[in-house]
Design a binder for these strands. Structure first.
Length: 557
RNA sequence: GGCCCCAUCGUCUAACGGUUAGGACAUCAGAUUCUCAAUCUGGCAAUACGGGUUCGAUUCCCGUUGGGGUCACCA
């Protein structure tokens, strides 16, 4: 292609945009001052909607790898597709990354400020940089304009399928790859829109070896696709392929971390890098997280519509402790994390020696909420009472104002409530997430008890007649004394149970079921449900101690 | 369909070519002077299939089957 034509193409492409030279650009992105082992990683989400749990997973790995090597972790927003961009999605990404405790070293911070000298960290603000590199490819005969319409391209693919050939824009199917200067000139004259395509040098018959930190060496066919470099949607923004190569080069990234769905296009990226005189990158392709369908019990990918768990807002809303989510994700990545963490759940997860090598088996791990909850209970049981109170109150203030107000009437009382059966060798573990707080503690507050818990009591006790219920309660109150110690209290309860027609002997009950109203356990249930509206609660004696004599009497009458 | 990745209990996974194939979650049973949670003890539970190589294969090779990914002017 002649220099004149190249100039015409550039004029048509750029309009009046003045580009910096490559040398000038690269002067602004000097080599980083770093030692051999220090890794520079980057997380590159697209602002297309909610934040996927997989983004947090990869982000956590990026963050760990960078910080463990005393390196740098970058957040780059990949917003080159303006059609798919969703309002507010960018802010959601930065905020939620902050919520998970993994804000970037470089890039947009949760508060909106920007750190780092290798920016801008939003691709749409880097347009002219990509244009410079695209033009260089054109100058070096490694790019050319393609005037094919989408209809023509579709027709070509149909043709390829009919002939049982590999679909795509390559080789002799690359319509505009080998057009003469005259044909290009005529097309330019006609003012038809065009897209700038990469001129591949590869052959599908030949192989290229990709070195991947997770998967090892992967042998793939060379790229021979002439992919678009710059879009013709009017934005003049690059496609992912060009943007990835240019950005990771300029930002001096040492390890390209991304989902494994990118693995097949890695030869293309190597092809572009080499065409630009850039040394191909080191990669780490991370597994994708799946889920077990609760209805069919089949394994499938996490989907936006069916699985609220796919959206990290779900985890934040349910208020699982961040540490538990991190622990779970880290455990998915490194199986030895589990043993390490369970020794002592109060450890800082950042002290774990994370390894990319342990990630090599990729089978799209299933998200196991039960296991996460197990971590979560351990984490919550391990935190201090002060921390517990802080989190429980913070969640309630935000999501259950009514309960929060009730709690704040008497903070000291609330503090007692929160501390029931925590502490000691065998702390209770019935709070897995902060959103469990209303259900676990609501009945301690009169108004809340009346509205939300008392109505449930009738059903929980429907297997007893109202006579049995009222005599059971009355008999209990007859001997109840709030100043009793626990042993006395329990002896009294046993006595009133027998008096009410319940037996202490389960075998006896089994032998003569008709003689009794039930066992001591059933009797305890009557008292418990009457008092709390729940079958499952902490120790009854302690509950009575905390709510006090008056309320015990009121609720049992 | 082409190309690539993967294949151990229900799930996440461990096992220099030699192990009674281990752990965790889930589940089941028993214990814990009241329920549940917790805790403790114990149980159930896996090398996809077929060929090789080898004294010996979960491990190495080939094939089959199965799952996943990818083949866009989406990232």
């Amino acid at each position: 292609m002649s220099e004149e034509i190249k100039q015409r193409i550039k004029n048509a492409l750029l309009g009046g945009i003045q580009l910096q030279s490559r040398a000038d650009i690269e002067a602004q992105y000097p080599q980083r001052q770093r030692s051999e082992g220090q890794q520079v990683t980057r997380l590159c989400p697209s602002p297309t909607g909610f934040v996927h749990i997989g983004t947090i997973f990869t982000g956590l790995i990026c963050e760990r790898v960078a910080h463990q090597s005393d390196g740098t972790y970058i957040l780059r927003i990949e917003d080159t597709d303006k059609k798919r961009e969703v309002e507010g999605a960018k802010e959601l990404i930065t905020e939620q990354l902050g919520s998970f405790g993994i804000p970037p070293d470089e890039g947009i911070q949760p508060d909106g400020s920007v750190n780092g000298k290798y920016g801008p960290y939003v691709q749409s603000e880097r347009r002219d940089i990509y244009l410079t590199y695209a033009c260089e490819l054109l100058d070096n005969d490694r790019a050319y304009p393609c005037f094919a319409t989408s209809e023509e391209l579709e027709a070509a693919v149909e043709d390829q399928k009919a002939r049982k050939q590999r679909p795509g824009y390559y080789g002799e199917w690359a319509l505009w790859r080998n057009k003469s200067d005259k044909e290009v000139n005529d097309a330019l004259d006609s003012g038809k829109p065009f897209v700038l395509r990469f001129k591949s040098s590869g052959s599908h018959e030949k192989r290229v070896t990709i070195s991947d930190r997770i998967k090892g060496k992967v042998d793939l066919p060379q790229n021979d696709l002439d992919v678009p470099l710059i879009k013709m949607d009017g934005s003049l923004l690059p496609t992912y392929h060009l943007a990835h190569v240019v950005d990771d080069y300029l930002m001096r990234v040492t390890l390209v971390m991304r989902g494994e769905e990118w693995l097949p296009s890695t030869p293309l990226h190597a092809d572009i890098a080499i065409a630009l005189g850039i040394k191909p990158f080191k990669y780490a392709h991370t597994p994708v997280i799946s889920i077990l369908d609760s209805e069919t019990n089949n394994k499938r990918k996490l989907s936006k519509r069916k699985d609220p768990e796919a959206d990290v807002a779900f985890w934040l809303k349910q208020a699982y402790p961040i540490k538990a989510v991190k622990a779970y994700l880290l455990g998915l990545a490194n199986s030895n994390f589990d043993d390490w963490f369970r020794e002592d759940p109060s450890k800082d997860v950042n002290d774990f020696d994370f390894s990319l090598d342990k990630l090599k088996n990729s089978r799209s791990p299933l998200l196991d909420v039960k296991k996460l909850e197990d971590y979560s209970k351990d984490v919550i049981a391990s935190i201090s009472q002060g921390e517990f109170n802080k989190h429980a109150l913070a969640w309630t203030e935000l999501h259950d104002r009514e309960l929060f107000d009730a709690m704040m009437v008497n903070p000291e009382f609330t503090s007692h409530v929160f501390s029931i059966e925590r502490g000691g060798d065998k702390p209770r573990k019935d709070v897995a997430k902060w959103s469990d707080v209303p259900e676990q503690f609501g009945y301690f507050y009169d108004d809340i008890f009346e509205q939300r818990f008392k109505p449930l009591a009738t059903e929980e006790l429907s297997d007893f007649s109202s006579d049995v219920l009222s005599t059971s309660r009355a008999n209990f109150l007859d001997t109840y004394d709030s100043s009793d110690d626990k042993d006395t209290w329990f002896e009294k309860m046993k006595a009133s149970a027998e008096k009410s027609g319940f037996t202490l002997d389960r075998k006896e009950l089994k032998a003569n079921p008709e003689k009794y109203n039930g066992s001591i356990a059933d009797y305890a249930r009557i008292i418990r449900v009457s008092l709390t509206g729940k079958r499952n609660t902490p120790d009854l004696y302690q509950i009575m101690k905390i709510i006090g004599n008056d309320k015990v009497i009121a609720r049992l009458n």
